[in-house]
Design a protein around this nucleic acid. Sequence first.
DNA 1: AGCTACTCCTGGTAGC
DNA 2: TGCTACCAGGAGTAGC
Length: 286
Amino acid sequence: MPELPEVETVVRLVRPKLVGRTIEGVHVSWLRSLGGSSRRAFEAAVVGTRVRAVWRRAKFLVFDLEREGEVAGWLVGHLRMTGRFHVEPRGFEAGPHERVRLDLDRGRSLHFIDVRKFGRLVFATDLEEAFPALGPEPLGEEFTARSLHAGLSERRRLLKPLLLDQSFVAGLGNIYVDECLHLCGLHPERRSDRVSAADAGRLHAAIQSVLSEAIEREGSSFDTFYRTPEGKPGSYQHQFRVYGRTGRACRTCGDPIRRIVVAQRGTHFCPRCQGRASPRTRTARG
DNA sequence: AGCTACTCCTGGTAGC
DNA sequence: TGCTACCAGGAGTAGC
């Protein structure tokens, strides 16, 4: 599932191939990938524009578009579970899962490929409107141990669903949350307001080190879905401490990794290294 | 405020 | 072999 490290990898690899290119045509095979726009409106908005910049916010990819030097809007992409971007020579056969294709100058095309069709490539004239409420970037300066501890303290939620909440911190997903919680030794069902400042500091450090290392390794590929725009798998999956390791030995203590379901998400953790969940009493009815 | 359930989707796989 | 049933999961939404 593409999370921040995978999206960052895609942005870095696709940027040099897209910046400066003009969009000469579009081909849409799955209308809903456009997020509610019609083919005609999308085409009118995008064809003839030039890509000025490619960047990332949370798990969104953003292409700044200009027309005759003026801002013409933005293309906002989200890979969700199975989305991929590839830049290939014109005529490249991207297969049955291509949803949108942008034909570029200099004989190239950008392919948006998405098996499960949850991903989006949306044209926006207002960036603020295009994004949902997003918390700080976990690798940005705003996100500190202190701010994390303050945020945890003012909510009363279970750690795992809170860390998955993009309005709390933007960019983590199911895999990296499990990895971060194991690294800092916190149970996914610990209540957020019961995390000490010291533990929040460890969690903060864990988030930054897991994400940075995953970016260095170009993300994680453990099934056929995520590949870089060069078609290569990432390699962070070899570092997984808990994700997908149910029943196997914890790399720290040797006890078996357990899988439970928290907030409808498969959740992997070491019962010995990650302590106890907070008791559920008094959380539901106050 | 915070929880669960449901929705969108398809490929893979378990069970028969 | 071939069928059905079910699962994974990011994020939005509805309802309690």
